[in-house]
Computed example of a mutant assay.
Amino acid sequence: MNKPIIHVLWLPLLGLPLLGLSLSACSSLAPLTGERFTLEGELPADFALKAQAHYDVANNCNGRSQARSFESDFQSTPQQYRFNIPVSYRDGLCEMRLGRVGLFIHGRYGDKDWQRTYDNGGLTLVETLPLGAPSFEADGTLTKQAECTWLFQLSKAHSRQGQISKLLSCKGAGAYLVADELPGKTVRLNFRENPEEEPSYDRRWIKTDAGWRPCQGTESSDRCQNPPAFKTFQMNGQECTVYPNCTE
């Protein structure tokens, strides 16, 4: 508890000091403790995760919304991540309450800077769960599985035109959480890498027994024509006809 602050006031008519006490409220200045939850899970090799927690002012304090970041970097082998995220905390006289957690799922498929990409997910705090949304188990855990799929395409960037580039699409990378139930709980969000890659656009590639073949487009469209005509592409310094095997 903060010590009382003693103010000395002068009464000009009497020329005497008047002592007054200004007691600060202990409950309004005391830091909140123990209000955290754990976000943990598994990441595939060459994946990284950033969780960005967004906080809003919960009292009449003249403060601003804030954000705190929690990160797990790339590793060449599968890894476990674990973030202890505050549900609330004090910033001076302001009581900050968690509003949502944004997730940035990063993946890399090569050693060059442009061979990295990401997809988004998130934890949404609500007063009541939407119909069908899972709730915490009796042991205080909520477990979900997210699946990330690589979407391949032919790059149109001038410096690497005709080479394979990829996007990342992660399904199930999030959850609804009841805000009042969150302190002390554990959200276990595991990420799985889909072994089957897919084209980033429909009707740009045709799947054969040997692999995916890119279509030769026309002046007005990049889509496969009927009958299709195929083209070659560059991958790892080689000229290829099918993906991912390169040659038939």
Rank of each mutant, 00 (worst) to 15 (best):
M1R: 13
P4E: 03
W10F: 10
P12F: 12
P12T: 07
L14F: 05
L14Y: 08
P17G: 03
L18M: 13
L19M: 13
L21I: 14
L21P: 04
L23R: 12
A25M: 10
C26T: 14
L29C: 07
P31W: 06
T33L: 11
T33G: 02
G34V: 02
R36G: 06
T38R: 14
G41P: 01
L43T: 01
L43W: 11
L43A: 02
P44V: 01
P44G: 01
A45M: 03
D46C: 04
F47W: 01
A48L: 00
A48P: 00
A53Q: 01
Y55N: 02
V57Q: 03
A58Q: 10
R64N: 13
R64C: 06
Q66D: 09
A67T: 09
A67M: 06
F70C: 00
E71P: 00
E71D: 07
S72I: 01
Q75L: 11
S76N: 15
T77G: 05
P78W: 10
Q79I: 07
Q80E: 14
Q80N: 13
Y81D: 03
Y81C: 01
R82G: 02
R82F: 03
F83Q: 03
N84M: 10
Y89I: 03
R90T: 05
D91G: 08
G92P: 00
R97W: 06
L98R: 05
G99T: 10
V101C: 06
V101F: 03
V101L: 06
I105M: 12
I105C: 00
G107K: 05
K112P: 00
K112F: 06
D113N: 14
Q115P: 00
T117G: 00
D119W: 03
N120T: 14
N120M: 14
G121C: 03
V126H: 05
E127G: 10
T128N: 12
T128H: 12
L129W: 05
P130F: 04
A133K: 01
P134Y: 00
D139F: 08
G140C: 08
G140D: 12
T143F: 08
T143A: 15
A146S: 08
E147C: 05
C148T: 09
T149G: 08
T149Q: 12
W150D: 09
L151Q: 05
Q153E: 15
Q153I: 08
Q153M: 11
R160A: 03
I164K: 07
L167I: 04
A173D: 04
A173S: 04
G174M: 08
V178Q: 13
A179I: 09
D180E: 15
P183Y: 08
R188Q: 13
R188S: 07
R188T: 09
N190H: 07
R192Q: 15
R192P: 00
R192S: 14
E196Y: 07
E198P: 00
S200L: 10
D209F: 06
A210W: 09
T218D: 06
E219V: 10
S220F: 14
S221D: 11
D222S: 15
D222M: 12
R223I: 05
P227R: 04
P228D: 11
A229K: 15
M235L: 15
M235K: 11
T241M: 08
T241E: 15
Y243G: 11
P244Q: 11
N245L: 14
C246G: 10
T247R: 15
E248Y: 08
